[in-house]
Computed example of a mutant assay.
Amino acid sequence: MAKAILAVDIGGTSIKFAKWTDNQLTQLGSEKTPDNLAAFYQLLVQKKDQLAAQMQVVGVAISSPGAVNKKSGVIEGTSAVPYLHGFPIEPELKKRLALPVSIENDANCAGLAESLMGAGRDADTMISLVIGSGVGGAVIIDHHIWHGAHLFGGEFGYMVMDPEVGATLSNLASPVNQARLFSQEIGRDVSGKEMFELAEKGDSLAQKYVDRIVTALAQAAYNLQNSLDVDKIVLGGAVSANPHLLPLIDAKIDMLQRKVDAPGLHPSVVVGKYRNQANLMGAVLDFCQSRSLAINEIK
């Protein structure tokens, strides 16, 4: 019987499922995120049993919100799924699923996917910036996640960008947040994608909000490059699919370098490969890496 890893990506509104087998990730659909822990356990056991009826499931790889403590098996911090936090959930899942289980933070999973198999696979050191409703990220050194002393490695969204108004990178660089402010100003709801489209058509107000996003990302990339001196900075999240974003960021970095006395290094900013599959792919890679397995062994 063919072997497979069940990959799970936990989000605030839905949980995605996929299987990894024979060097391929195959989506298995998604389910609404349960509102309690018992239902969450039941859903994961159900999905594992369904896959086990067809293949030999050798483990469950989970991408999760929150600060995952790999030593204790506890998901620390807070998230939109509060029942996941504050107790040894990894051992509990191992017992209920009767399989090896790995759990890693979702942004770290995305970064690991790009480092090992995506846009950063030729980079020994890499930063991942995942842009969505906020800004998450990861620091990858020698193709391994650097968690930091307090599990805050890669939490770039907390960077203070404008101390006078208390604005963080998550505030300023999130298309979701900036589209909300833009919508309030024009009196109708507009998505981040629509706001970018309006800006490209010459809408001056939309351009102001897009420039705020681009400026924040350019400043963050420039400062991170000149703090950590990495090989690449990889952008993820839905906005990274916009073909105009990268040239705008590069141009803004050029402008920043012209304004400062010591221009520093221009970061190599690239767009990620995996986008909406990055968390699932990274969860599988984390599972294999934590067990010293070659990913092509699962077949």
Rank of each mutant, 00 (worst) to 15 (best):
V234I: 10
I249Q: 05
C288A: 12
S30P: 00
P88S: 14
L84W: 09
I89K: 01
V139T: 11
E185F: 00
S30C: 07
G154I: 12
L246T: 04
Q46N: 12
M161V: 14
V45G: 00
K3Q: 13
P82H: 00
A18E: 02
E194I: 14
L97H: 04
F40D: 15
L198H: 04
L151I: 12
I145E: 13
S115E: 01
G264D: 14
V139W: 14
N223C: 09
M161S: 05
I253D: 05
L51H: 01
L25M: 07
S79A: 11
L129K: 02
V81P: 13
V234Q: 11
A241Q: 15
A216T: 13
S227Y: 04
W146V: 01
F152V: 14
G73A: 03
S79K: 02
I10H: 06
G59A: 06
S268L: 08
L84P: 00
D106W: 06
L116A: 00
L112E: 10
G132A: 08
L248K: 15
A113Y: 08
A98K: 15
A61K: 14
W20L: 08
K48E: 04
Y209Q: 08
E185M: 12
V165D: 13
A18Q: 03
W146A: 11
P65K: 05
P65R: 08
S30H: 06
G153P: 10
E194H: 04
R291T: 05
E164M: 15
E297W: 12
P263D: 11
F87E: 09
A173C: 08
M126N: 04
A167Q: 07
V139H: 09
Q257I: 11
M159K: 07
A107C: 13
P88G: 13
L116T: 03
R96A: 10
D211L: 01
E200S: 07
T13M: 09
K48V: 00
A216Y: 14
I89L: 15
E194D: 07
D250E: 10
Q289H: 07
P82S: 00
P91R: 09
T125K: 01
G237L: 05
A206D: 10
V234N: 10
F287R: 12
V139A: 08
V58E: 13
A80R: 15
I103G: 06
S227I: 11
S64C: 03
R212F: 09
A278Y: 03
E114C: 05
K32E: 13
A38P: 10
L217T: 03
F152P: 00
V230F: 06
A119P: 02
M126Y: 02
A283F: 11
A149C: 02
D122N: 14
Y274I: 01
A61F: 02
S64Q: 03
E155L: 09
V74R: 04
N276G: 02
S72Q: 15
D142W: 01
A61P: 07
E90Y: 02
F156E: 12
T78A: 14
E76R: 05
D35E: 15
K208C: 11
